[in-house]
Design a protein around this nucleic acid. Structure first.
Lengths: 205, 205
DNA sequence: TGTACATCAGTGAACGCGCGTTCACTGATGTAC
DNA sequence: TGTACATCAGTGAACGCGCGTTCACTGATGTAC
């Protein structure tokens, strides 16, 4: 497979991989099309056989990231088994695990500033990923008395926001912000307190 | 004042303001030293009379941002009056208000990737800002029974993370993510649920 | 008050650089006969 | 099985551009006498 001389074999994916590596190393800003081409052992011009340009290449990286992300979230949610609560907590953990394990994808998705709206394939898979989290929140919120139940989309937005905030502030070399706690523990505790506030966990757990 | 011909008058601050405007408009990536100089009505070379270079200029913007931020947080906290709870909630609201009102500063502080460690003045004021939030958390956590009390630094990290996450995901033109709720309402509700989980608010409030 | 002079903020030309993108091309691959 | 040929992935040279930074300079300002 691949790399057999004049013809590369699978340059498209090799460019995606190179972009991923560069973004993970230097941030979305540090990435350049020329460098990605060089990393893949190819002339910058060759990139144009596979992508419309720089932005299109980043968008494909983000698309693949959302694809993985949606899969990871679905796997963690596991159709709400063994319980709505356990499944929900698993998706929270999966968010952080994804950010840790796929930093390049994560950055391309959330920090590169690519517009979701302009790329239908990208928008579709992003919506799918969001859907998993909302579904997890919806099935869990059925356990809350209706009169005290916040909308599921608000619920999932809270968890998403806290997860994202933990990642950005504490799980990366962000500007001077490292907590004395491992991000996983921080997020787990935070979600626990939040769920207790919803009456979904006993007050003294 | 200023702008009186050959000599600018207060070029240093004019450059900071121009940087602020550019960052708010195009993100930290979109900002260039040359453009900031042009915006201030001056040759790019003139910048070097006041700053060591591009990075130093951004750092000064971030420093001023942290200065404002710390002041806003201190004002909101108001020495814990009228109550620890009210003061704490005020700091949460102040975080979001700051991000809204000073987008350029916010971006320079949290999204520009400037290293806090290398600039002592910057690191100092950032620590001061963080201190306010931790103090608010600490005085509030005195109302929690000691055996159920999480460390104040964890507590404040949770609130910081949720606030930051709400800002990044829902209060900006972030990639395809807009909730059906105004960010202020979203954050207020989230903090409320969290505080209930800590036993600091009645369960049915 | 008026003149001489030191200071130093900003000029403008120049630099080398790497960028994204284009273009006519070349040569490896794979198919038709 | 062997040859002719179409396809098309990647080359390499070139482009115009704006960047950050440097340098010797100029001229406005403000102070000393």
């Amino acid at each position: 497979m691949a790399k057999a001389g004049y013809h590369h074999g699978n340059l498209r994916q090799a460019l995606v991989d190179a972009t991923l590596k560069l973004i993970a190393e230097k941030g979305p800003t540090g990435f350049t099309l020329s460098e990605a081409a060089k990393e893949a052992g190819v002339t910058p011009a060759a990139v144009y056989r596979h992508f419309a340009g720089r932005e299109d290449l980043i968008a494909e990286v983000a698309r693949q990231g959302y694809e993985i992300f949606a899969g990871v979230m679905e796997y963690a949610f596991n159709d709400g088994k063994p319980s709505a609560l356990a499944a929900f907590e698993a998706t929270g953990r999966a968010y952080l695990a994804f950010a840790r394990r796929y930093p390049g994808h994560y950055m391309a998705m959330f920090e590169s500033g690519i517009p979701l709206g302009q790329n239908p394939a990208l928008a579709a898979v992003a919506a799918r990923a969001r859907g998993v989290l909302e579904q997890a929140a919806a099935s869990l919120s059925e356990h809350i008395p209706p009169d005290r139940r916040p909308p599921a989309s608000m619920f999932s937005a809270h968890i998403w926001a806290m997860s994202h905030g933990v990642v950005e502030l504490f799980a990366r070399g962000a500007p001077g912000t490292h907590s004395p706690f491992p991000p996983e523990q921080l997020l787990e505790a935070g979600i626990g307190i939040y769920l207790r506030g919803l009456g979904l966990l006993p007050p003294d757990a």
